[in-house]
Design a protein around this nucleic acid. Structure first.
Lengths: 227, 227
DNA sequence: ACAACAGTTCGATTAAGATCGAAGTGTGGA
DNA sequence: TCCACACTTCGATCTTAATCGAACTGTTGT
């Protein structure tokens, strides 16, 4: 039973540790240079170059020249979702992998998942939005009238986006929390806006830090207590 | 940047052609024996045994003894979704894989995707349901009042299922059609019911065949013209 | 009890590909 | 023009794991 588009080649591509680390490093949606990815993967730059060529050929990444650097990014949200899915599966395996070490608590607390907020903060945020009736508590949440007003108050306008292909809201399963956080277009806009407002700040890698202003604002607007 | 639950090991597991074929063969939700899976993968039974042990250890499969056979199935919907996601990515790569050959047209036409209907038939079916207002045309469709009545007419009762964890409806991206078909609980019930009614029949592997009765019923109930 | 069958374990072989040193291409800045 | 830098290509080495023959465990049916 030959399988049409061979799933194995793609999986094998992701299955190499060096390449997997590169892909994981790109999960926050940024574009990184070949050298940066080499460092992230823990290999020399020649090796990284080979890997990147393969990922590019398979269209998992898109490359873009800028001066003498080449910037790579994930080629689409579908790639990111598969990667998150794999993380979920890896999580289940559990005990096998516990050796890896420190398990950055900041990463557990708040991090970026492709282009929206994940981690404990992301999960509780979604909880609050549902609890207040700003989103419908359906499998795929929708923005209520109250919600639309609330988001406009934050400076996030979503009505104009209704016709886009990307789902407005999406429950994105969180590998560290085993619960869902808010993805989709609204999730992405919300993160962008919160960073514009200076409530959140980028940390190392995928880590997101809450500023003092943010702490106040989150308590004020969402009823979240500081951690 | 060590990645918590190592995504690479899981992906590598799926990345071996033999194991990938086994997983693909299990995508229809059936349980298969080790020998059947060996044949599906095109390897000897000893080799298959080794692979199955690994997949089992990683919790991608669950095993169940029955007499002198061991039946394996995918351990959950999350595994199936990651596999479909990988198929989607493999599809994009396109030209690289065209060599594989026949590309079964029956498989394109109608097949089972884990536990619901996919392929051209699955896609047009979802279209019809949306067009007739039986499902809401939202990112995650919901069953309308008309829809609930319609499904009851088919012998599919869904109200009682409202409280279950599994999403009622779900747009599941189709790797052969590049459009969505109906997944979720409703998708699963619908397929089961159609097979009970003798409208659809299992073919080789994941292929689904439409019976003459089914052809009439689909035209009658859904306004689908025979192909 | 015995033969047939399903599956597992072991060991030797073999093939694939990840890795890095060294050398090559091309861009940017002095 | 020349050097520094980002990246790519080539070639040799080495590790990993997929594969199958053969032997072993355990179950079913006669």
């Amino acid at each position: 039973m030959k399988d049409g588009p061979s799933i194995a080649t793609v999986a094998a591509l992701i299955g190499d540790p060096a390449r997997a680390n590169m892909l994981a490093a790109l999960m926050d949606g940024r574009a990184l240079t070949a050298s940066e990815l080499a460092e992230a993967a823990g290999v020399t730059i020649q090796t990284a170059s080979g890997h990147l060529a393969k990922l590019d050929a398979a269209r998992l990444l898109t490359a873009e020249r800028q001066g003498r650097n080449r910037y790579f990014r994930l080629s689409g949200t579908d790639v990111a979702f598969v990667l998150e899915g794999l993380m979920g599966l890896a999580q289940r395996t559990g005990a096998v992998q516990v050796r890896t070490g420190p398990r950055d608590p900041a990463l557990r607390m708040a991090r970026v998942c492709y282009d929206h907020l994940a981690g404990e903060l992301g999960v509780t945020l979604l909880d609050r939005l549902l609890l207040r009736g700003l989103l419908t508590d359906t499998p795929e949440p929708d923005v209520t009238a109250d919600g639309a007003a609330f988001f406009i108050g934050l400076g996030v306008h979503i009505d104009s986006q209704r016709k886009r292909r990307r789902p407005l809201c999406r429950r994105c399963l969180d590998w560290s929390e085993r619960r869902s956080h808010l993805g989709g277009l609204v999730g992405a806009r919300l993160l962008t806006r919160m960073m514009e407002q200076g409530w959140l700040r980028r940390g190392e890698g995928r880590v997101i830090l809450v500023t003092p202003d943010g702490r106040r604002a989150l308590a004020d607007r969402f009823g979240l207590v500081a951690d």
